[in-house]
C-alpha cells in the first residue's frame, strides 16, 4: 500500500466519521419529533426544520469554553478526545465493500471490541476530572454499566466468530448465510441490547440521567467539548450499527454486491441506527439495580446459551472453516 493510498484512506475515514454521525443526529431529531409529536426540532429553517442541526452546531461553537476552577484541568480538556477517538479507530476496521475496509485486519472483530472498550476511559476521566459530585456519581454508574455490558457484547461477538471460523470481519461476511438470522438470533438480540447499554442511550442512560444527577460526567462541559461527547455518542451509534450489520446481517452482501456492496453496508447500518433511535423513543429509563440485574441474570446466560448452541451447530456441520 503506497503512502498516497494510506493518506487517501485516512482522509476518507475522517470524512465518513464527521459526516455519518451528523446524519444519524439529524435522523434522530426528525424521527423523535415525529414519534413523540415534538414541535421544537421541526421549526428552524422551514421544511421539516432542516436547519436545527446547523443552529445547534453554531450554538456550540459560540459558547464559552469553561474549565471549573477545582477541576484537573489537563485531564478535563483531554477527556472529550479520549471518548471520541476510539470510535474513529474502530470505524477503520469495518468492511465497507467486497474486499475493502479502511484497515483490513485479520483480527478485526477483536480490534473493534478493544477500541470501543477504551472509549469508557473518556467518560470516566471526564467524570473524575470535573470535581463535581454529580459528575463523579455519573462516572461510577457508567463504569459499572460498561463493565457489566462488555461481557455479553464480547460473548455475542465470540458466537459469530465461532460460527464463521474467523476473527476477520470480512471473513465473517463471506461465511454468512441467510439462515444465520435464525441460528444467531439470541446472540443478535443480546448484542443489540448490550450495544445500546454500551452507548449509554435510553433506556440505559442512568450515567447521564438528567432528572437524577444533572447530566452525569458531562455536567461541567460546555461548547465544543460537550459537542465532542455528543459526536462520540453518535459516532458510537454508527460503529455499533455497522458492526451489527456486519456480524448478523451479512454486511455488504446483497443483490449486485460487486457494484453496490457499499450501498448495502450503509443501508443496513442505517436501518439498525433507526432501530436504536426507535428503542430510545419507546422505552423509559431503567433503574440502576434493574440494569445490573438485567445484564448479569438475563443477557449473560442468554449469550452463553447462544455460544453453546453455536458450538453444537459448528460441530454438527463438521466445522465451517
Amino acid at each position: 500500500m503506497s503512502t498516497l493510498e494510506v493518506i487517501l484512506r485516512a482522509a476518507g475515514l475522517l470524512a465518513a466519521f464527521l459526516l455519518l454521525p451528523l446524519l444519524v443526529g439529524q435522523t434522530e431529531h426528525k424521527v423523535m419529533a415525529h414519534m413523540q409529536g415534538r414541535l421544537g426540532p421541526m421549526y428552524a429553517g422551514g421544511f421539516h426544520g432542516w436547519a436545527q442541526l446547523v443552529a445547534d452546531g453554531a450554538k456550540f461553537v459560540q459558547k464559552e469554553d469553561i474549565v471549573p476552577a477545582a477541576a484537573d484541568k489537563r485531564l478535563f480538556r483531554l477527556a472529550p478526545a479520549l471518548a471520541l477517538i476510539p470510535y474513529l479507530v474502530a470505524l477503520a476496521a469495518i468492511p465497507v465493500h467486497p474486499g475493502f475496509a479502511v484497515a483490513d485486519l485479520p483480527g478485526g472483530a477483536l480490534f473493534v471490541l478493544a477500541a470501543t472498550s477504551v472509549g469508557i476511559l473518556g467518560t470516566l476521566v471526564a467524570g473524575w476530572a470535573s470535581a463535581n459530585k454529580y459528575a463523579l456519581i455519573g462516572a461510577m454508574r457508567s463504569a459499572a454499566q460498561l463493565i457489566a455490558y462488555e461481557l455479553p457484547l464480547a460473548l455475542a461477538v465470540a458466537s459469530v466468530t465461532l460460527a464463521a471460523g474467523t476473527l476477520s470481519l470480512g471473513g465473517i461476511i463471506e461465511a454468512w448465510k441467510p439462515w444465520w438470522l435464525l441460528w444467531q438470533l439470541p446472540g443478535a438480540l443480546v448484542f443489540l441490547v448490550a450495544a445500546v447499554a454500551e452507548l449509554q442511550r435510553p433506556p440505559f442512560d442512568m450515567p447521564i440521567a438528567d432528572a437524577e444527577i444533572v447530566f452525569g460526567p458531562y455536567t461541567e462541559y460546555t461548547g465544543l467539548r460537550f459537542a465532542f461527547f455528543l459526536l462520540a455518542e453518535y459516532g458510537g451509534i454508527v460503529v455499533m450499527s455497522l458492526l451489527f450489520s456486519t456480524l448478523y446481517l451479512g454486511g455488504w452482501r446483497g443483490p449486485f454486491d460487486d457494484l453496490a456492496g457499499w450501498a448495502w453496508t450503509l443501508l443496513k447500518g442505517f436501518v439498525i441506527a433507526l432501530l436504536l433511535i426507535w428503542i430510545r423513543v419507546s422505552w423509559p429509563r431503567l433503574r440502576e439495580d434493574q440494569l445490573q440485574r438485567f445484564a448479569w441474570l438475563t443477557l449473560i446466560p442468554l449469550a452463553l446459551l447462544q455460544l453453546a448452541v453455536t458450538a453444537v451447530g459448528v460441530v454438527l456441520m463438521g466445522g465451517s472453516s
Binding site: L113, A114, V118, I120, L121, L124, L136
Partner: peptide, 20 residues
C-alpha cells in the same frame, strides 16, 4: 488486541472505579 481489551478496557477501568 487482547492486551488492550483486557488490561486497558477492563483491568485499569476496574482500578479507576475502585479508586473512585
Amino acid at each position: 488486541l487482547v492486551q488492550v481489551l483486557v488490561y486497558v478496557g477492563a483491568v485499569v477501568v476496574l482500578v479507576i472505579f475502585a479508586l473512585m
